[in-house]
Design a protein around this nucleic acid. Structure first.
Length: 464
RNA sequence: GGCGCGGUCGCCAAGUGGUAAGGCCGAGCUCUGCAAAAGCUCUAUCGGCGGUUCGAUUCCGCCCCGCGCCUCCA
């Protein structure tokens, strides 16, 4: 079975194949906006993309995959953050980029081949906007901003099936079920409500964040969507094999990218579109207002490991909303232990690679990670038999689970606890069971767990 | 209002037109003085009502409930 992925444009499962003669598969994954720590929902999409990357490597070879993921380092949010903290924009974005990289590493994500930043590609974006203006697909508004003229692109709305972006009677906004502030939406200067910004003229609140714009426009900065069009073209070419991101990017972001790129390049932008679904927390989308937003650091502070989070993210189908619960992390830690135990049990054993075919089949079938995990445990439950260690490791590579046991944390054991443990051990050696039991109870009360071995014991702090 | 998704064991979660994977929790057992660890065993008829079919959890229709996007969010 060949690798197949769902394609959002045709809404069907389509095989994944390189379209260019060099056999290199090119894919672009919309990356983070670096203004704060990414939350675990963001990481769901990056982990899913990491599995795509890994599956592509297994499918075509590591040297036949080109993976690009951008960094959005200039937009309203980054600028606001810098202004609030009275720091230069680059200082803020570099800080959060470093944090993002650290989190990705902790989650065992492979590093993209290219990680272009928007601010490093201003000329490319300006050029693209220039072309669009020259072709009549974009216009300059009175304030010097440039907008894309949606009506100039017939295919607009094909991806999202949203033909009109205007507010209609009965829309969410009209219905009043929104408390969001729409005053900052740059609607004033647009010829049509559906048009979107390619270039945003400088405003006082932008501070020193500004660049020269296309000819005849004012200083300013690029709109959000254009960076992906420009950077994808620069690093992967006018037509790419796959473009990915979270569902929320489907509209307007990806719809707009298609419009810009296809009008500019006169060729298909992406052969294949893949969108991962949202991670929900306690049944709702994460949001600061609901207070159900978690970062990797927060989970670590609660004593959970990044691998456990990765496992939890794998436990749901990537294209289905996944309901995250903290208890899932505990379940994941246990499952991971089983995996580690199995791996240790088969050590360097060789066996029948075909034994694990079901796991790879599930993965190749639109990245069905939960089914793959199910198949894996099904095999594990039938015993170590002729399990092939190398094949097992390939599975771990594919889903990116690092089974290396978490580094032994050095824990200071208080002297009084050690003393109690020594006394109990002595009582046990003397077969004075009542005394031993009393001492065990005392140790437990003190918050520690004494685990006996044949030749000694271990002490661990009791988990809350 | 438009577009889309989902409702499967206590929790998480796959799946198929022929009576439902897996993980966690729980229960019982084995092994250990106890505990821990490990091993074994056990636990669902798939939101509701109709329809199609020899047969539906799986296809169609309606209803109920939940979620997402439509607003520079992964």
């Amino acid at each position: 079975m060949a690798l197949q992925l769902h394609d959002s444009l045709s809404r069907s499962l389509r095989p994944v194949t390189p379209s260019q003669d060099d056999g290199v598969y090119r894919f672009y994954n919309c990356g983070p906006t670096v203004y704060a720590a990414a939350h675990i929902g963001n990481f769901r999409s990056f982990v899913v993309n990491d599995i795509i990357r890994r599956m592509l490597e297994l499918e075509f070879g590591a040297d036949k995959v080109r993976h690009v993921r951008n960094l959005t380092d200039v937009d309203d949010k980054t600028i606001r953050r810098a202004r609030e903290e009275k720091r230069p924009l680059t200082e803020v974005t570099q800080e959060w980029t470093a944090k993002f990289h650290a989190d990705c590493a902790a989650l065992n994500c492979l590093i993209p081949h290219v990680e272009p930043a928007a601010t490093d590609h201003i000329p490319e974006q300006v050029n693209m906007i220039q072309v669009l203006m020259d072709k009549g697909n974009a216009y300059r508004a009175a304030d010097g901003s440039v907008y894309f003229k949606v009506s100039s692109f017939d295919n607009y709305g094909r991806l999202s099936r949203v033909k009109e972006r205007e507010l209609k009677a009965g829309s969410a906004l009209e219905a009043g079920n929104t408390g969001k502030d729409t005053s900052s939406v740059d609607a004033d200067e647009k010829e049509d409500g559906t048009d979107f910004a390619l270039w945003k003229a400088w405003k006082p609140e932008d501070g020193d964040v500004k660049w020269d714009g296309p000819k005849g426009t004012f200083e300013g900065r690029p709109g959000w969507h254009i960076e992906c069009s420009a950077m994808s073209k620069k690093h992967l070419g006018a037509t790419i094999d796959l473009h990915t991101g979270g569902v929320d990017l489907l509209f307007p972001h990806h719809e707009n990218e298609i419009a810009q790129s296809e009008c500019c390049n006169d060729t298909e932008f992406a052969h294949h579109w893949y969108h991962s679904e949202h991670l929900l927390v306690d049944g709702k989308k994460m949001s600061k207002s609901l207070g159900n937003l978690y970062t990797l650091d927060q989970l670590k502070e609660m004593g959970h490991s990044p691998v456990a989070l990765r496992y939890v993210l794998l436990a749901g189908h990537p294209r289905k909303q996944l309901n995250f619960m903290l208890s899932s992390l505990t379940a994941a830690e246990k499952a991971l232990q089983t995996l580690r135990g199995f791996r240790a049990a088969i050590a360097n054993q060789t066996g029948d690679p075909a034994k694990f075919d079901g796991v790879f089949d599930a993965l190749r079938d639109d990245l069905n990670t939960p089914a793959a995990l199910g198949a894996l445990f099904g095999i594990i439950n039938r015993g170590t038999g002729d399990a092939d260690a190398a094949t097992f490791d390939r599975i771990m590579f594919a889903i990116g689970l690092d089974l290396t046991p978490p580094a032994e944390t050095i824990i200071e054991i208080p002297a009084d606890i050690t003393a109690l443990a020594e006394k109990r051990w002595a009582a046990k050696q003397a077969k004075d069971w009542p005394a031993a039991d009393v001492l065990r109870a005392e140790i437990i009360t003190a918050g520690w767990t004494m685990k006996d071995r044949k030749d000694g014991y271990d002490l661990e702090p009791s988990r809350q």
